[in-house]
Amino acid sequence: MMVEQLLSKIGIGISSIELGVIDTYLPLSQKQHDELSAGLRTLGLELLEDKKNILIEKVKNVIIDMIHHSEELPQENYSVFISEKMGYDYAYISGIFSEVKGITIQQFIILHKIERVKELLLYNEQTLTEIAYMMHYSSVAHLSNQFKKTTGLTPTFYKRIKRRREQNLENL
């Protein structure tokens, strides 16, 4: 809504607006472009014009949506899922992603899966086995190994730290 208000204030007519993408009726004048760029910075956002950066942001949004906001992860390979969602060959997307972000798409996915596992561990509603199944790990051991490699902690120790914090708060 804040972006829509900014666009309206500057006098930019939009045909559609989605997360990270704005389609305008007419090309922007240099003055509108500068005002939009400055206005977005005040909102803590930035204007992405480089096609590679735009593609990367879309890929990141697809991955984040897939891991954090979906009821369940897709059954097909992530590469197929991302490629279909983006409408590009996975090798092309992967090459640009690695070039711009300095990590592979697979590493980005792992980081977000581990963040999601942390959330699930903190809610304490599922067992580690259920979480491993839900996050499409082949086994609890695989999840535990990846968790430890990423965080330096085992999932069990991570949960124990949370319990200790809660106990310390209760004892205050």
Rank of each mutant, 00 (worst) to 15 (best):
K58H: 01
Y88L: 06
I12W: 11
F108Y: 02
E125N: 11
T24L: 11
I63F: 00
I131F: 05
I64R: 04
K162S: 02
D34Y: 09
I10D: 08
L73R: 07
I12H: 03
M1V: 00
L55H: 00
L45E: 11
L128F: 09
D23C: 10
K52P: 05
I12G: 10
F147D: 00
Q146S: 07
E115C: 04
S8W: 12
N53V: 08
L55G: 08
S37V: 06
L45R: 10
D89M: 06
E84H: 13
I10N: 11
H33S: 08
V117L: 03
T127N: 11
L128V: 11
F147R: 07
H136W: 03
L28P: 10
N77C: 13
V140S: 03
K149C: 10
L7Q: 01
K31Y: 12
M2H: 12
S138P: 04
I131D: 06
Q30D: 09
K85F: 00
I96T: 03
Q146C: 11
A38K: 12
G13A: 14
N145T: 13
Q146D: 09
D65M: 05
D34A: 09
I103K: 09
H142P: 08
L7I: 01
D65T: 07
S70H: 05
P155G: 04
L143M: 15
T42Q: 15
Y88D: 08
K60G: 07
D50F: 05
L111G: 02
L26Q: 15
Y25W: 15
A91I: 05
D89R: 02
E18V: 13
E115Y: 08
G152Q: 01
N145W: 13
K101G: 07
K85S: 02
S98V: 05
Q5D: 15
S144V: 02
I114R: 06
